[in-house]
């Protein structure tokens, strides 16, 4: 089955991972800007990072036949440094017309601080002014419920925000309703030690339905698995869910959400590969 991984940090992965993803049916990915494992010292570092995400990474993904899209921002963790964050936000507009940029992300909260909230709202303002879609990181572990609630509060307080153009990521059992009830898209992250497992993600689908929801690997430099979406497909198949339903979650839904971005010029694998569907 073809799938799209809507959230994976491929700059932290090898070309072998791209190859394996292709063999498992991956046809496109989207890569939000994130924390590199250390705090960067200057806005210039982010400028280089944005070039990597918009120049080299799409080319490298293309070597394996994968279409690469990206989202730009300064992540929530480094947003605690407000002055650096504002410098980085000023850099973003020059990249927004690049052909693989889908919008602003992954913005959000990390420790739910006021500084993080300030920069989150400034990113949202930029996105709205530049007519960009938004991809949102929600905090992990004990911070998640409170942080997701705060994020929804900030989005709802800005009347310019169109919920159907916003994706709230890393939802779990206690936050999925917060996103869905207010009309936002949401995604579950399949991550081995924190976040969701494929089985729990399938449980959430069974409880809350398959509308405006997707799954991703968030593969990065930590313990993670860029083949987590195929694991979810397998879990759904074992439970007896139809191929149509599974495809809706791993392929149709990301396509529908991303298609709202003017830069999303997706090439169907049916055209690229002809009849040779995996």
């Amino acid at each position: 089955m073809y799938f799209i991984d809507p959230h994976v940090h491929m700059i932290s992965r090898t070309t072998d991972d791209y190859e394996r993803m292709t063999r498992m049916g991956c046809v496109a990915i989207s890569e939000p800007a994130f924390w590199a494992g250390y705090d960067r010292g200057s806005a210039a570092s982010f400028h280089d990072y944005f070039r990597q995400l918009t120049e080299f990474e799409p080319m490298r993904a293309g070597w394996s036949g994968i279409q690469h899209y990206t989202w730009l921002c300064i992540n929530a963790k480094e947003a605690e440094n407000v002055s650096l964050a504002r410098e980085v936000i000023k850099l973003i507009p020059e990249f927004l017309d690049r052909p693989n940029v889908l919008g602003i992300g992954e913005i959000g909260l990390n420790k739910n601080t006021l500084n993080e909230s300030t920069i989150f709202q400034e990113h949202v303002d930029l996105a709205v002014r530049m007519n960009q879609q938004i991809l949102i990181h929600t905090p992990h572990l004990q911070d998640k419920f409170k942080g997701t609630h705060m994020i929804v509060d900030m989005l709802r307080a800005d009347s310019r925000v169109q919920p159907q153009r916003v994706l709230i990521d890393h939802v779990e059992e206690h936050t999925v309703r917060l996103a869905k009830d207010h009309g936002f898209w949401c995604a579950m992250t399949l991550y081995p030690t924190t976040k969701c497992t494929p089985a729990r993600a399938a449980d959430i689908i069974e409880q809350y339905g398959d509308e405006q929801i997707m799954v991703n690997s968030a593969g990065d430099w930590g313990p993670s698995n860029p083949l987590a979406v195929p694991d979810f497909i397998q879990e759904m198949r074992k439970r007896g869910h139809s191929e149509t339903k599974i495809k809706k979650i791993v392929y149709d839904n990301p396509l529908q959400f991303f298609s709202q971005s003017k830069n999303f010029q997706f090439k169907s694998p049916d055209i690229t590969y002809g009849a040779g569907k995996p």
């Binding site: 609630h149 705060m150 509060d153 206690h174």
Partner: peptide, 19 residues
Amino acid sequence: DRAERVQMLFSDAYVENWM
């Protein structure tokens, strides 16, 4: 809804009107 209740047990409280 045990999974949701376990999540809430390990979650920080949300404060209304924080903004």
